[in-house]
Each structure stands twice: as structure tokens, then as C-alpha cells.
């Protein structure tokens, strides 16, 4: 564990807490894409299925449980919570996110570390996470007035993977040159997708 990765994980955790706070405090999910939240839940379920088979550290296991339960809680709120679900703007959240799932799955079948169930699920989760923010970015660009909690949520979500890129650079120079090209490329695409959001976020 290095400082970049820890900072990345904390930024990621913070983004989830900001979103939970927004939904809980305002009892509203206006401006939040449910499709992006569903994609993140799939990302975590596909990536953390080794939660019960491989123990890496207490930190690793606790964080996996936190990310799975929080993403599921957010999706549940947006689908089932009587007050929150009414504030979901369904006709605005129109991105065909099934296409993202299919594309990530096909990519994972072709490009993976090893052709095993676990590695294909892991690659699928990495590719899907890279594009999972798209429905949310489209929703933001619909010009609706973005409340600043939602804006902060997206900002921290974009920043976390940037810290991970620093983490990969650090590990490359300190731990030997493992091939992490799947994480590398996906991480660059993921952070790149936020570029115009960051541009407008700082201009605003």
C-alpha cells in the first residue's frame, strides 16, 4: 500500500459518502444517474467476488464490503425508497448503459490476464468502471442546474482514479515492471472521460 493508492481509496470512499449524504439529507436524487449507479454496483460485484475466497488484508476486505453495500444502498434508494425514487428524472437518464456492459464483456473475453472466470470478471469490471460514468456525464451536460453535492460527487470520483494512476507509476518504479496494462489503459480512459467535466467544474 502506498500513499497514492490510499489517497485514491479515500477519495473514492469520500465520493460515495458525498452521494449518500446528498440522497439522505435532501431525500432527493435529482441530477444523479441511476444507470451509472447500477453500473458501479455491477463493477463492484464483478471485481470483489474474491471477497470470500482470497483474504488480502482487513483494509481490503472492509473496503470491498463498504463499496458493495454502499452502491447497492444507493441503487435501492433510487429504485425503492418512496420519497427518493420520485425525484429520479427517468426521461433525462437515457444513456443505453446495456451497450456499455456488453462492450466491456466482449473486451474482457478478448483482453484479459488469463482466460479464467475470475480474470475475465476482473477485466470486465475494470473496463466497465472506465465507462460507467458516461450516463452521469450525459445527464450533467443536459444543462440541468447541477446541485453542488452532485458536482462534488463526480469530481471526487474522477480524482480517485487519477491517484491510482500515480499509484501505478509508483509501483512500476518500486516493485518491478509487472504488466498492469489493463489497469493502466482503462485508468487513463476513465480519467480522460472526466477531462471536460473537470474543465467546466473549475471554470464554474
Amino acid at each position: 500500500m502506498n500513499a497514492f493508492r490510499f489517497l485514491g481509496d479515500m477519495t473514492h470512499l469520500f465520493s460515495v459518502l458525498v452521494l449518500l449524504l446528498k440522497i439522505y439529507a435532501t431525500k432527493s436524487c435529482s441530477g444523479v444517474s441511476r444507470k451509472t449507479q447500477e453500473l458501479y454496483m455491477v463493477v463492484f460485484l464483478a471485481r470483489y467476488m474474491d471477497l470470500f475466497t482470497d483474504y488480502i488484508s482487513l483494509y481490503n476486505s472492509v473496503m470491498k464490503v463498504v463499496f458493495i453495500t454502499s452502491s447497492a444502498a444507493i441503487v435501492w434508494c433510487m429504485r425503492r425508497h418512496p420519497q427518493v425514487r420520485r425525484t429520479y428524472d427517468k426521461e433525462q437518464d437515457t444513456f443505453r448503459h446495456v451497450v456499455l456492459v456488453a462492450a466491456a464483456f466482449v473486451l474482457a473475453l478478448i483482453f484479459n490476464e488469463r482466460f479464467t472466470f475470475r480474470e475475465i470478471c476482473w477485466a470486465f469490471s475494470i473496463y466497465l468502471e472506465a465507462v460507467a460514468i458516461l450516463p452521469q456525464l450525459v445527464l450533467l451536460q443536459r444543462g440541468r442546474n447541477v446541485d453542488n453535492l452532485t458536482g462534488q460527487y463526480v469530481f471526487f470520483l474522477g480524482a480517485y482514479r487519477a491517484f491510482y494512476i500515480l499509484n501505478w507509476i509508483y509501483r512500476y518504479f518500486t516493485e518491478g515492471h509487472h504488466s498492469r496494462w489493463i489497469s493502466w489503459l482503462s485508468g487513463l480512459v476513465q480519467t480522460g472521460l472526466y477531462a471536460d467535466f473537470f474543465y467546466y467544474y473549475f471554470l464554474r
Partner: peptide
Amino acid sequence: RSDAVEHDEL
């Protein structure tokens, strides 16, 4: 684990 790749990151 036998697998070469160890995914120790979140």
C-alpha cells in the same frame, strides 16, 4: 494462490 496475477488493489 496459483494465479500469476494478484489483484491486491480495490
